[in-house]
């Protein structure tokens, strides 16, 4: 029974996609709507077996879905925060998480290889357990814990109690000792793939099926995403999308950064990926075939990439200065 209903949602996805895929925002709204339909469907299924939810909860998405930067193909990254602490609640919401993950997979969102799914106990916890876990991640501060923390900070509520995600983010911001946390976060997001060589030429793939194309995810998006996430942490911004984080950033904390310019550049970047990427599958959608671009467009892409790198360096420099000055 549930299977056939997920098939309905899959059809809905198929029918709506062409229309939505004309701009990044409407595309991400469609993804949200599909997720919400799957959640509703899964909740109905679980209600039949185990009754209604035992307490209020929030279902959040993270990763590119959290940041509203999905392309047409996307895998699933999500978690659940439920209000009351208890074994029964834990059991109930894990069942729900499992049903949602299965449903999403059937609708066309492959499982997350890294296990960032509400079917995984690590990502399906009560509010108080989440608080403990986040504190543990901050204290452990090793590579994996920092990675998880960064993933959580990209969380965006999609269903249920809007405030749960925000409260946990505030918990992170208020309890973290930034001068200890920041160096770890910087170390974890320090690497980015160089996009332009010293001669000013775009560094496209030299080998493989995407030879001649630009890896727009690693070269283009990542510097913006990582830099803006760091800004959000410093400014205690609870929004998850890169664009809304840029909108929300204070004018004073990074006085050298022209946020309007970066907002424009990032929007353009998302448009390029959507319009020029080969949308056959997830991997191919992240390669920009430079040969199909006009001279003007190539220059624009180059500028976007250079600006991304500049933004990243500016944020990094500013934060390193803060760390050495011992901010709290």
């Amino acid at each position: 029974m549930s299977r056939s209903s997920y098939t309905e949602i899959q059809k809905f996805r198929f029918n709506q996609m062409d229309e939505a895929a004309i701009d990044p925002l409407s595309l991400n709204r469609l993804h949200d709507e599909i997720f919400q339909r799957v959640i509703t469907q899964a909740m109905g299924q679980i209600a039949k077996d185990y009754g209604p939810p035992p307490c209020p909860f929030s279902f959040f998405v993270t990763g590119s879905a959290g940041r509203m930067e999905q392309s047409i193909w996307s895998d699933q990254d999500h978690g659940i925060i439920f209000h009351d602490d208890g074994h029964e609640e834990q059991f109930y919401f894990l069942q729900l998480g499992r049903e949602i993950s299965t449903g999403l997979c059937q609708v066309g969102y492959p499982y997350c290889h890294g296990g960032v799914m509400s079917s995984n106990p690590l990502w399906c916890k009560s509010s108080s357990q989440w608080q403990k876990q986040l504190s543990k991640w901050m204290n452990e501060a090793d590579w994996e814990a920092t990675r998880y923390l960064l993933i959580f900070l990209d969380a965006r509520n999609l269903f249920g109690e809007q405030t749960f995600v925000q409260q946990l983010k505030k918990h992170v911001y208020h309890t973290a000792n930034q001068s200890l946390l920041m160096p770890n976060l910087l170390a974890n997001t320090m690497y980015y793939k160089k996009g332009v060589n010293v001669l000013g030429k775009l560094l496209t793939e030299t080998h493989g099926p995407y030879a001649g194309s630009l890896n727009i995810k690693e070269i283009g998006l990542f510097p913006y995403v990582n830099a803006v996430r760091l800004i959000a942490i410093k400014d205690h911004i609870v929004e998850a999308s890169t664009l809304s984080r840029l909108e929300a950033m204070s004018e004073t904390s990074f006085p050298t950064i022209d946020k309007k310019g970066y907002i424009q550049q990032f929007q353009k970047l998302l448009n390029y990926r959507l319009l020029f990427g080969d949308q056959t599958n997830y991997t191919s959608s992240h390669y920009l075939p430079i040969k199909q671009l006009t001279k003007q467009q190539t220059k624009e892409v180059k500028d976007i990439i250079k600006d991304g790198a500049a933004l990243y360096h500016a944020v990094r420099k500013s934060l390193e200065k803060d760390v050495s000055n011992g901010i709290k």
């Binding site: 030299t206 080998h207 493989g208 099926p209 995407y210 030879a211 001649g212």
Partner: peptide, 9 residues
């Protein structure tokens, strides 16, 4: 080499 003529490493 791939069908489109691009080389693999």
């Amino acid at each position: 080499y791939n069908k489109d003529g691009s080389a693999n490493n």
